[in-house]
């Protein structure tokens, strides 16, 4: 599957079906600070991601004060 990461914007290819939580763990991204969008729709941690999915992992932390 194609995975879009942000800040900075970049793409990685990940092969093989897995859950959202598993993908975040593999990429070392905390669940509390990221949302995952599958084919344009928000999905929860136990959702399945398949090879033909377009996935975006969006960080949600803002830095200003």
């Amino acid at each position: 599957m194609r995975v879009l990461l942000r800040n900075p914007r970049r793409e990685v290819e990940v092969a093989g079906r897995r859950s959202v939580n598993a993908l975040l763990r593999e990429l070392g991204l905390p669940r509390e600070s990221h949302l995952v969008i599958r084919n344009g729709t928000l999905v929860p941690g136990d959702a399945d991601l398949a090879d033909d999915d377009e996935v975006e992992i969006r960080p949600v932390i803002s830095g200003g004060v």
Binding site: P8, H34, L35, V60
Partner: peptide, 20 residues
């Protein structure tokens, strides 16, 4: 902020994801 970001995604609000 995970919830406010999700609000924007669900409501179709385009916002600047990149950080200052």
């Amino acid at each position: 902020e995970r919830e406010t970001a999700a609000w924007c995604i669900v409501r179709g609000i385009d916002y600047l994801v990149e950080e200052c």
